[in-house]
């Protein structure tokens, strides 16, 4: 057993104990008295091992900035049989929209969220805060000093993100609209060809 193997095994045991709280690269380096580079190498070694080994039901993931041991996706259905009730129900569309706005625009006030959606979002914000997905993050230095909201590391974990920078880029309006336009033009061409100067809009 060489030193690299020992480091990987040490890290594996630490991650097992840490569970869902996980450990950051920095913590792992400090705990194993190694450099972050060495830890990164060991983590890669572990990951390759998990992914290649068919007898391993667990693997390594990085969510919310921490490394954690998780079960492999292909055994999800088997694991669910362990639960008496299916795990927590889906989020409402309203809550998802509010969460998306807060995630991309944070820190953001409730009014700004309302403005984007055109409806009041108070209830959804309360639900999201009580579920731990968002938190208050200071107040805006403006009249009324409204509360600013931001997402939590629990949000990152639950949505499989390592950091806020990992959010998929918002669809560029131009790109998106080019597609629609192309489609619409084509569609209209066909329509017009069929109807011969048909209906005017």
């Amino acid at each position: 057993m060489n030193e690299r193997d020992i480091l990987a095994a040490t890290i594996e045991s630490l991650l097992f104990v840490a569970g869902e709280e996980g450990l950051t690269l920095k913590q792992l380096a400090a705990l194993t008295v190694s450099t972050e580079g060495e830890v990164t190498q060991a983590l890669e070694q572990l990951l390759v091992g998990y992914e290649e080994r068919t007898t391993s039901g667990i693997t390594l993931r990085q969510y919310g900035g921490v490394f954690q041991l998780v079960t492999k996706a292909e055994y999800a259905e088997d694991i669910k049989r362990l639960f008496e009730n299916p795990p927590s129900k889906m989020m409402t569309q309203a809550a998802l929209e509010v969460l998306a706005i807060i995630a991309y625009k944070q820190p953001v006030t409730r009014i700004e969220v309302d403005d984007v959606r055109g409806v009041k979002s108070e209830r959804a914000i309360q639900t999201l805060a009580s579920k731990g997905f968002i938190m208050e993050k200071g107040r805006l230095e403006a009249s009324g000093r409204p509360i600013l909201y931001a997402t939590t590391s629990y949000f990152l974990d639950r949505f499989g993100l390592n950091s806020i920078e990992d959010l998929p880029p918002l669809l560029q309006e131009t790109e998106d609209d080019e597609d629609t336009d192309l489609f619409l033009t084509k569609f209209q061409d066909i329509l017009e060809a069929q109807e011969e100067g048909g209906n005017s809009v």
Binding site: A18, E20, Y63, T71, A73, A76, I79, D157, R158, G160
Partner: peptide, 9 residues
């Protein structure tokens, strides 16, 4: 993300 399970510390 929901298909990966983990455990409490």
């Amino acid at each position: 993300r929901a298909v990966h399970f983990t455990k409490p510390p």
